[in-house]
């Protein structure tokens, strides 16, 4: 059961399409309502960041299977300016654009896994996973 969806983000409204696709996939995999809502919100956050901070990018959604668990992997990829300080970007209330600065820290709490790779001037790749049955939170940085 390997399904993959890509949504290209170049306008603000495209984040709604990414959200819809995430919800469809979550429903298809039998995610609970709250988990599906968390996932949808996280995808919206990542997509909005692509548009707002990187001038666009792509959201990729993939089904994950692990022993008895199913999950969804979200990859937000862009070739924008990169994040200068990932730790700072993950801090509550940090925003370079007058936003609330709640997006990335929120995604960390809404999802089960979060991994951010960013290189200045080259772009950012954020990978986040949500498992249908919650497994321990794993965090990594590279």
């Amino acid at each position: 059961m390997l399904e993959s969806v890509r949504v290209s983000i170049s306008e603000e409204i495209h984040s709604a399409e990414a959200r819809r696709q995430a919800l469809l996939l979550a429903q298809h995999l039998g995610f609970g309502r709250t988990d599906a809502y968390y996932l949808a919100t996280a995808v919206t956050e990542l997509a909005t960041n692509l548009f707002r901070h990187a001038g666009g990018g792509e959201i990729q959604l993939r089904t994950l299977t692990r022993q008895n668990a199913v999950g969804i992997e979200v990859i937000a990829h862009d070739t924008g300016p990169g994040i200068a300080n990932v730790e700072q970007a993950l801090r509550e209330g940090f925003s370079t654009s007058g936003g609330l600065g709640c997006g990335l820290p929120g995604v960390r709490r809404l999802m089960d896994e979060l991994e951010i790779c960013s290189e200045m001037g080259r772009g950012t790749r954020i990978r986040a996973c949500k498992w249908a049955a919650i497994i321990q939170t794993v965090e990594r940085q590279c």
């Binding site: 709250t34 809502y37 968390y38 820290p105 929120g106 709490r109 809404l110």
Partner: peptide
């Protein structure tokens, strides 16, 4: 909604 409220809390809004 209840889901919305929980999400807002997770987001720290």
């Amino acid at each position: 909604s209840p889901d919305g409220a929980q999400t807002l809390v997770k987001l720290g809004v």
